[in-house]
Amino acid sequence: MLAGGAGSLALYTVTAHPAHAELLIPDVVFKAMVDRMGDRTFSESGDNIAFTLPTHAETGLSVPATVSVPNSPMTQADHITSLHMFTELNPQPYVADYYLTPRCGKAEITTRIRLARSQFVYAGAIRSDGTAWITAFYITVNLGACAADIFLPDAAEAVRRRQLEGG
């Protein structure tokens, strides 16, 4: 169980990455969680959230990510009201917030996100009874040989923009 309250640090255990068996949620991420999910008690997700990303990405430009609460019945009485994603080391911690209704039928979204570097990415879910779960996933953003001739994701983005503009 994680203590709520803006600005506090919470000790939170993840097993996604062997080198980081224990993880302190960074203040910037915790504040973002409180901002987008409300000042409430956050619980470690356990198996409730399925957060799927590749373990490695060649570049951080467009990384597929799926957030799901597979066991939610998505009924009026028991459904997921929102799903969230946050990053630790991007220029801003906010990624996206998705607002669901029982009419979604399935508590799952898939999107593509930007990652400035290797880091933990966080997913959150709020249930209709107010329960909030969070989980984390460590992703290595691979910029090395055979992987890309682009050594900074943002530089690559700029190159791409110039191409789009014919510059």
Partner: peptide
């Protein structure tokens, strides 16, 4: 399935 690839510019 990707937006960029290895040695893309070359």
């Amino acid at each position: 399935a990707k937006d960029s690839f290895s040695k893309q510019g070359l």
